[in-house]
């Protein structure tokens, strides 16, 4: 089955790839990053019902053991998200790819592409392939925004319909990566090399967190891998994202935002390595 849990669809976005794009955000991630800006997208609902009693408008109800959500009654207070013990959300629509394709058809005149994001989009492979096939028939550009914990080299059908991946490389140092995400990063690093060689790497993204992560080491080692591709004219971008304590879990709320000096220095490393597009956001 190819239905997927969709947390949110943004009809127009200028920050998820080239031009104006429609973005699908899936629910569910296989990483559990301490600094996640949308921690409520990590888990999947287990129908425990913890959110039902805290909902002030009755938008969430338990029906036959299943949590049901009615958008039209929701006041958007997010009390349900705070009450959820699994970093999940009851406000998720299970959607068939055909429904997504129909939306793209409506938006087609105004967009040049579609981006799937998360949560983690590779967990929704079947949905993504079908959605992208439909998008390709409309002449749309297709991008995945992924944490890279996926063996892209073994998935030719996916790569055939995917024009590029925007890859999060959170940390190259294995120990620090494990501490941040709860997972190993060997697949992420394999994805970095493989996608770059396959011409499917749109950009790399690293969130810069002062003190807690070896930011400079990550940027240097990513650049070492990409430098040969850049020297051969690859247009792979490097987006350096300033950590901001917005939407993060309690233990990260007091972490400092990196200053512009730090960001400029990191950006200089990428430029010196030959990166044609460095973006600090």
């Amino acid at each position: 089955m190819s239905a997927a849990p969709v947390n949110r669809i943004i009809p127009y976005s200028s920050v998820d790839g080239p031009g104006n794009r429609t973005v699908f955000f899936f629910q569910g991630c296989n990483f559990n990053c301490g600094y996640c800006h949308n921690p409520e997208t990590i888990g999947l609902c287990s129908n425990c019902g913890a959110c039902v009693s805290v909902c002030p408008t009755g938008a969430i109800r338990m029906e036959d053991g299943v949590v049901r959500y009615r958008r039209e009654v929701c006041c958007g207070c997010d009390a349900c998200l705070c009450a959820c013990p699994r970093s999940a959300s009851p406000k998720v629509d299970w959607m068939e790819p055909e429904e997504g394709i129909e939306l793209l058809r409506q938006y087609r005149p105004f967009i040049r592409g579609v981006t799937v994001s998360g949560g983690e989009c590779t967990l929704r492979r079947a949905f993504v392939i079908r959605l992208f096939e439909g998008a390709k028939e409309m002449g749309l550009h297709t991008l995945m925004d992924s944490n890279g914990n996926y063996d892209f080299s073994a998935d030719e059908p996916l790569l055939r319909v995917c024009d590029g991946v925007m890859l999060d490389v959170k940390c190259v140092n294995a120990k620090a990566h494990r501490a941040l995400t709860g997972r190993e990063n060997d697949l992420v690093l394999k994805s970095l090399s493989f996608l770059a060689s396959a011409g499917k790497l749109e950009e790399v993204r690293t969130v810069v967190v002062p003190d807690l992560l070896p930011n400079e080491d990550t940027v240097r080692r990513v650049c070492e891998k990409l430098s040969p591709h850049w020297r051969q004219g690859a247009r792979i971008g490097y987006k350096l994202i300033r950590f901001r304590p917005l939407g993060v879990r309690a233990n990260y709320r007091s972490v400092a935002v990196p200053d512009m000096q730090t960001m400029d220095a990191l950006s200089r490393i990428a430029l010196d390595a030959g990166c044609p597009r460095v973006l600090v956001v």
């Binding site: 031009g19 104006n20 105004f110």
Partner: peptide, 20 residues
Amino acid sequence: VTAKKNPESLVDIVKGAFSV
């Protein structure tokens, strides 16, 4: 202001607007 970093996105919207 976010659109400032990606003015092409605004051009896509204008193209769509003219096509409708």
